[in-house]
Amino acid sequence: MKGLYIVLFLFPSLECSTTRCRRSIKPLGMTLLYESLCPDSQEFLTSFWPVFRYYHNCINLTLVPYGKARFLATLRLANMKGLYIVLFLFPSLECSTTRCRRSIKPLGMTVLYESLCPDSQEFLTSFWPVFRYYHNCINLTLVPYGKARPARGGHVCQHGRPECWGNRMQNCALHSNLNQLKQMQFIACQMKDLQLVKKRNFKCAKSLNIIKSVRQCMKSNGQGNKLQADASRITSQYQFNEIPAIIYNGVLNEDLQEASRNNLRQTLCEIMVKTKHLLPDDCYTY
């Protein structure tokens, strides 16, 4: 069974004590089976909160933070009285590692980008939902530097000094304690609104509880300048004409670059079929 599971037990009478549910005797039984690091669980539960606040007196809620860890086999639905409905969300909302079970080593993917580049913005924001789906198949490296170049006292960036600040800040965040999924979540948050960089806004770092480490990294005695030097070195290994540059398994292929920018999901899926991370049919179950 795949995905986030919502189990609703609808008893014969759906009653609770407030005037909103005054005709009921027993509250609605509702059980949510979720995972603490599943983005789909996060999306559902945060949207469920205002609904539950309104109807909480009508609902007997049970939250089970366990998910796919062999829990459902022990759920004794036969012992529950009354009518019950079990909703299984579609596989596109799954948080399973089985999607790439055929792979031995994840596909290496490097994205060279700039924090104030509109093309980088377009690519990375569209990449976020694709990466959420395939993240267990990919070893992702994000490098915020692009067409910048080293200069005396620092770096010169294509979109000016604000971009140099943004590149350094995002590099600090990427080298905090975030896993790859959270790294991409942070970058998607940042790139959604380029004004965040222009206004030196730390909203995305704050939302992921890394603002303290990011600020420390960006101080004059922090690691920010070294990380930018490392980003410059990584970027200089590749010959590219456009940013973002998308590199698979250490090779920059112009045809794959163009295909990735035009239809990333399909291109990425076809690559992973060739590398035997996926079977051909997997490209049609997204």
Rank of each mutant, 00 (worst) to 15 (best):
Y34W: 14
Y34K: 03
S36Y: 04
C38H: 09
C38L: 11
C38W: 06
D40H: 15
D40Y: 15
D40Q: 13
E43M: 09
E43K: 09
E43L: 12
F44E: 10
L45H: 03
W49V: 13
W49T: 11
P50T: 14
F52Q: 08
R53C: 08
C58G: 07
I59V: 15
N60K: 10
L61Q: 09
L61R: 05
V64M: 11
Y66T: 13
Y66D: 08
K68R: 14
A69T: 14
A69M: 11
L72I: 13
L77V: 14
A78V: 09
M80E: 11
K81Y: 13
G82Q: 11
Y84P: 13
Y84S: 14
F88D: 13
F90M: 07
S92G: 13
T97S: 14
T97K: 04
T98N: 13
R102Y: 15
K105P: 04
K105D: 14
L107W: 07
G108V: 01
M109N: 09
T110D: 05
V111R: 01
V111K: 00
L112G: 00
L116N: 08
C117A: 03
D119F: 11
S120H: 06
F123C: 02
L124M: 09
W128Y: 15
W128A: 11
R132H: 10
R132D: 11
H135Y: 15
N136C: 09
N136S: 14
I138Y: 08
I138S: 07
L140C: 10
A148L: 06
A148I: 05
P150N: 08
P150R: 08
A151G: 08
R152G: 10
G154H: 01
G154C: 06
H155A: 01
C157V: 05
H159M: 03
H159I: 00
P162M: 01
P162Q: 06
E163L: 04
E163Y: 05
C164M: 01
C164A: 05
W165D: 03
W165S: 02
N167L: 03
N167Q: 05
Q170S: 07
Q170C: 01
N171H: 05
N171A: 11
A173V: 07
H175V: 00
H175S: 00
S176A: 06
S176K: 04
